Simulated scan of single mutants.
Amino acid sequence: MAYGKSLTILADPTRRAVFEHLQRGPAAAGDLARHFPVSRPAISQHLNALLDAGLVEVERRGTKRIYSIRLAGLEELRSWIEGFWETALARYKEALERHEHNDQ
């Protein structure tokens, strides 16, 4: 149930905004901090939480740590959400088939 941890981690608005900002491309904590009204240490804490949840990955480049979205980390969350669509579409299909059957 890793999607549960992902949902919990992304529930924080600042953390979610940091994660969404990484959609634009990899960034260092200091670069990210310039876009938010919180300190660089606070951004680092948010990044560590995202890292712990497997939603981001980090790469060392010289003295910098560059963070990027880890697409594999979103797979379980995506599968969970797609399960709702699959169920809804199956129910819709059943309703259409019942309607067609009743019209005959």
Rank of each mutant, 00 (worst) to 15 (best):
residue 29 A to M: 09
residue 97 E to K: 12
residue 31 D to L: 11
residue 78 R to S: 04
residue 48 N to R: 15
residue 44 S to L: 06
residue 59 E to V: 08
residue 60 R to A: 15
residue 83 G to R: 00
residue 11 A to E: 10
residue 54 G to Y: 14
residue 48 N to G: 14
residue 54 G to I: 13
residue 32 L to E: 03
residue 1 M to H: 12
residue 44 S to W: 02
residue 87 T to I: 11
residue 62 G to V: 07
residue 55 L to R: 13
residue 18 V to Y: 07
residue 91 R to N: 02
residue 19 F to R: 08
residue 22 L to S: 04
residue 80 W to P: 02
residue 23 Q to F: 10
residue 87 T to N: 03
residue 48 N to Q: 15
residue 19 F to A: 12
residue 4 G to N: 02
residue 29 A to N: 10
residue 99 H to T: 01
residue 6 S to D: 13
residue 70 R to D: 10
residue 92 Y to Q: 01
residue 69 I to V: 15
residue 87 T to E: 00
residue 12 D to E: 15
residue 69 I to P: 08
residue 77 L to C: 07
residue 17 A to S: 14
residue 53 A to G: 14
residue 95 A to Y: 02
residue 67 Y to K: 00
residue 81 I to N: 05
residue 89 L to V: 11
residue 49 A to I: 00
residue 15 R to D: 04
residue 63 T to H: 11
residue 79 S to F: 05
residue 56 V to K: 05
residue 73 G to Q: 00
residue 14 T to N: 02
residue 17 A to V: 09
residue 42 A to K: 07
residue 64 K to P: 03
residue 90 A to Q: 08
residue 67 Y to D: 00
residue 69 I to R: 12
residue 41 P to V: 08
residue 8 T to I: 15
residue 84 F to R: 03
residue 80 W to K: 00
residue 59 E to C: 07
residue 58 V to I: 13
residue 53 A to T: 15
residue 36 F to Y: 08
residue 12 D to C: 08
residue 74 L to P: 05
residue 60 R to Q: 15
residue 102 N to F: 13
residue 44 S to T: 10
residue 9 I to Q: 12
residue 27 A to W: 01
residue 29 A to I: 09
residue 44 S to R: 06
residue 14 T to G: 02
residue 29 A to C: 11
residue 102 N to M: 13
residue 47 L to A: 10
residue 4 G to A: 02
residue 28 A to D: 14
residue 19 F to E: 09
residue 65 R to M: 09
residue 80 W to S: 04
residue 73 G to Y: 08
residue 17 A to R: 10
residue 89 L to Y: 12
residue 100 E to I: 00
residue 21 H to Q: 11
residue 60 R to F: 10
residue 24 R to S: 12
residue 64 K to T: 10
residue 36 F to M: 00
residue 99 H to G: 03
residue 77 L to M: 12
residue 16 R to N: 15
residue 5 K to T: 15
residue 72 A to E: 14
residue 43 I to T: 04
residue 49 A to W: 03
residue 89 L to E: 11
residue 67 Y to T: 06
residue 72 A to D: 14
residue 52 D to I: 12
residue 43 I to E: 05
residue 62 G to W: 09
residue 61 R to S: 06
residue 45 Q to A: 04
residue 16 R to V: 07
residue 98 R to Y: 04
residue 27 A to Q: 10
residue 58 V to P: 06
residue 102 N to Q: 14
residue 95 A to F: 06
residue 96 L to S: 00
